[in-house]
Simulated scan of single mutants.
Amino acid sequence: MFSNSSKYAIKAVLFLALHASEKNKVMVKDIANPINVPLAYIAKLLQQLVRENLVSSVRGPKGGFYLSEANLNKSVINIIYVIDGEEKLNSCMLSLKKCHEETPCPLHNVLSASRNNILNKLKNITIKELASDVNEGNSFLPL
């Protein structure tokens, strides 16, 4: 359901939520290795997220990436929308172009309620809440 790019972007954003702040910015080279994503790839993804105000950054010797309070309060689904686009999340699970409510593919009716449930959960959970779950030990992120 999610592309590798979206998964990498979510891991990077969570890394920033857990390890960076406005006073303690993190450089791309310090993110790539812990989340196991090539440096150039994660740099490109982070720039997309900066352009859409999901991640903050500062250039220069004391620069790097971090999450502002406004960034932390964005819903997780926004990351996926920026990286993959909203259409990908709503596209047919069998990649059939003509699949929709009136002409459903064989999996449409089986999976559509589950997909809608997942999308609603991603719309209603913030980056801050996911990071808090990791900090509290309710989930883990091997960083």
Rank of each mutant, 00 (worst) to 15 (best):
D30W: 11
C99N: 01
L54V: 00
C99Q: 01
V82W: 01
E22D: 09
K88A: 10
R115C: 00
L45C: 04
H19I: 07
N53Q: 12
N138W: 00
V13E: 10
N120G: 14
Y66M: 01
E52V: 08
L46V: 06
K128C: 08
A113H: 00
K128H: 15
A32I: 04
D84F: 05
N73V: 09
A20K: 00
L46Y: 07
K74L: 05
K128N: 15
S6K: 00
Y81K: 09
S75H: 13
K74S: 12
E101D: 12
Y41M: 14
A131P: 02
E86S: 06
A17G: 04
I79Y: 06
K121E: 09
C105T: 09
Q48D: 03
Y41V: 15
S75P: 15
L143M: 00
V26N: 00
R59G: 11
E136P: 12
N116G: 13
Q47K: 14
L54P: 05
L45Q: 07
A32S: 13
A70F: 08
V37L: 04
A40N: 15
L46C: 09
M93S: 11
L16A: 04
S95D: 03
N36C: 13
V26S: 04
S3I: 10
M1G: 13
S139E: 10
K121T: 13
D133E: 14
N138M: 01
P34M: 08
L107F: 04
S75E: 07
S3K: 10
A43G: 15
C105F: 05
P34K: 03
I42E: 03
E22R: 07
I83D: 02
E129I: 05
I77S: 03
N4G: 12
V58G: 02
Y81R: 06
K123N: 11
C105L: 02
A40G: 15
H100Y: 03
N117R: 15
V55E: 09
V50Y: 09
P34G: 00
S6W: 01
L141Y: 01
M1V: 05
L14K: 10
R115M: 00
G137L: 07
N73K: 05
R115F: 01
V50D: 05
L16V: 10
H100A: 10
P61S: 12
F2N: 03
S91T: 06
V13R: 03
L14P: 00
I80E: 07
F140K: 14
L67Y: 05
N90L: 13
N78V: 08
K123R: 15
K62P: 11
L54F: 04
P104S: 04
I10L: 06
I10Y: 04
S75V: 11
Y41C: 15
L94D: 10
N36K: 15
L94N: 14
S57C: 01
D133H: 10
L130Q: 03
